[in-house]
């Protein structure tokens, strides 16, 4: 890549950043949606319970139909509120869970590979190779690699 190519890439980068659609974080939309979700989750059942009492306390079919509408509004509020809450509150948790899962899978794959090949960890093998080129004892290098592994997982 020549200097011209790089200048071109930087200019393209600047243009693309300028064209990005950014949301102002000051609006706190995510937090607002979570709060709305919680409000819906609380208000929805309240509406439904109130509707039951309204319907139970009258023999007037018109009032009972109104109560049914209020009850359905309550159910809708609870469902929508639940969805908003799950979207806002669980997204962060699920992100960490997924990252954790990826890490665990990586560690599991390392263990499996080591067990199948009957060798030490790749880091230890590399350290041993490096030690051989430096003229150190492989055991010494493996200890060093083991220390590194321990510090990584610790």
């Amino acid at each position: 890549m020549s200097d011209n190519d790089n200048t071109e890439r930087v200019e393209r980068f600047k243009a693309e950043v300028a064209a990005m659609h950014l949301r102002d974080p000051a609006t706190g939309l995510d937090r607002l949606l979570v709060r709305l979700g919680v409000a819906g989750l609380v208000a929805g059942p309240c509406f439904s319970i109130a509707a039951w009492f309204i319907a139970h306390g009258t023999r007037n079919p018109l009032q009972q139909r109104d109560a049914i509408v209020v009850g359905l509004i309550g159910v809708t509020l609870a469902v929508v509120g639940g969805a908003l809450f799950v979207k806002g509150a669980m997204a962060g948790f699920l992100r960490f869970w997924m990252a954790r899962l990826c890490y665990e899978q990586g560690a599991q794959a390392d263990r499996l590979a080591a067990a199948l090949t009957g060798r030490t960890s790749p880091e230890a093998a590399e350290a041993a190779a490096a030690a051989a080129s430096d003229g150190r004892a492989p055991a010494e290098a493996e200890t060093a690699a083991g220390d590194k592994d321990a510090s990584r997982t610790g």
């Binding site: 693309e16 950043v17 990005m20 950014l22």
Partner: peptide, 19 residues
């Protein structure tokens, strides 16, 4: 600031897409 523009709150996916 990225390329002179304030990017507070930009998603990681958007930033990766632009480079």
């Amino acid at each position: 600031f990225v390329a002179g523009r304030r990017t507070n709150g930009a998603s990681a996916a958007d930033l990766a897409r632009v480079g």
